[in-house]
Nucleic acid binder design. Structure first.
Lengths: 228, 228
DNA sequence: ACAAAAAATGCTGCATACAGAATACAAAAG
DNA sequence: CTTTTGTATTCTGTATGCAGCATTTTTTGT
């Protein structure tokens, strides 16, 4: 995100069934991205007037979006003083990863039981794409596909609540991970773990998938530890 | 909750440091309770005008509270049609309990490692109080203390993210559990399991606590299964 | 010159007002 | 009698305006 000018309310393209994107959703997504990508660093006060003008929206919908993000845990509401971007300590991050690991281990087990072949194939496709991005050295796309794969596995579990909780933690961690750029050797290790994950999933090997996911996230902590 | 008249903005009791309760928090809590306690059954449309008048608040803060609850997963936002109380299927409930079980098992293990004696003592106190309510046949207080105990264990883990996720699921399930009134024999069994939990916690027996918590929630599903 | 008090500024919190969409109702045509 | 279409009402979505609190700056007294 380089510069924010104004929010397009709706595509306004040609005719046809225009995608009715509610402003609320657009705002939530936009603010979330701004936080994740560092446009709004931790500790920043969300200035309603200024921010609203920047985005081309009045304060009312903006405040609603902020409240939504507060419930999501990305911002903190301070009475009479508005909202500030939440700051996570190293322990917070470690704790989140601990929970995320537990959830992914569960998701892995469930996914092996319930996932359809088509679902597995989709994850495989994402993985292959990710590997090619890795080989091309495209960190940003690699990162995004990485997230998508973990999200996809959580969804393959067929457990909506699990996918929800996973999503919330994933979002909270996105900002951290967005920063943490590991070196080449650790990056290679991460890709290898992913390879192993997909293999286990395709073999419907519960124990192995669960184990790999757990190991993967244990290492994730080591990777981001220093950048927190 | 029998009848809703209006929200007290602040206690307005005697002088002194008046508790500065922000209206937002009050509203969120109030709406949450209304949903949990069945004043707003699943599928109900949250009528902003009417509801606001009922609570003595204008639409603006009400909408903000609704957005907050939407992020929490208690209500669903339908574009151009407002918000409706989310309806959970039997599978949804089962899924939530599956995740909650996984989280509590983790919390149990962590709590045995990190909990202070004082913390454990507090849970014990809650438990004793709960047992006395049980013996007195006071279902409502029993139910509330039951929830408090599970929440307390999640917090004893010392993992804020874990407590958060646990809290969200617990809230979503409250409405269901509030309805599910098990018979005397199952009730007795639940109390016995709680007794075992506390013993394991006091003994700092990770495996046993984790196991009991898991078993407890497995049975919880059986208890509410029919009332969903 | 320094400290304390007072005024002024800026922001949040809430209410109200207005515009557009959705639904309900009614009338007319088949 | 059913269906369709036009109209009216109701509700949501967004903007704006006002009051109160917090903070900062200015002023005043020592």
């Amino acid at each position: 995100m380089n510069e924010i000018t104004s929010l397009e309310r709706r595509p306004e393209g040609g005719p046809g069934p225009i995608r009715r994107t509610a402003l609320h959703d657009t705002l939530v997504t936009h603010l979330r991205d701004m936080i994740i990508e560092g446009d709004l660093p931790p500790g920043t006060r969300l200035h309603e007037g200024q921010l609203g003008e920047q985005l081309g929206v009045s304060r009312t919908p903006l405040r609603e979006a902020i409240k939504y993000l507060a419930s999501e845990g990305l911002v903190e509401l301070v009475p009479s003083r508005g909202a500030v971007v939440k700051r996570f300590s190293a322990k917070d991050v470690q704790d989140m990863l601990t929970v995320l690991r537990s959830l992914e281990e569960l998701a892995g087990r469930l996914a092996c039981e319930t996932a359809s072949d088509a679902g597995v194939a989709e994850v495989r496709a994402l993985h292959d794409e990710m590997v090619s991005r890795y080989k091309a050295g495209d960190r940003l796309q690699y990162y995004k596909l990485n997230q998508q794969i973990h999200t996809a596995i959580a969804q393959l579990s067929g457990n909506a609540a699990l996918a929800d909780m996973h999503g919330i933690l994933q979002t909270r961690l996105k900002r951290i991970r967005f920063i943490g750029h590991e070196g080449p050797e650790k990056w290679a290790a991460a890709v290898a773990e992913h390879e192993e994950m997909i293999a286990a999933l395709e073999a419907r090997d519960q124990a192995r998938l669960s184990e790999v996911l757990g190991r993967h996230l244990r290492k994730a902590w080591e990777r981001v530890r220093d950048s927190v």
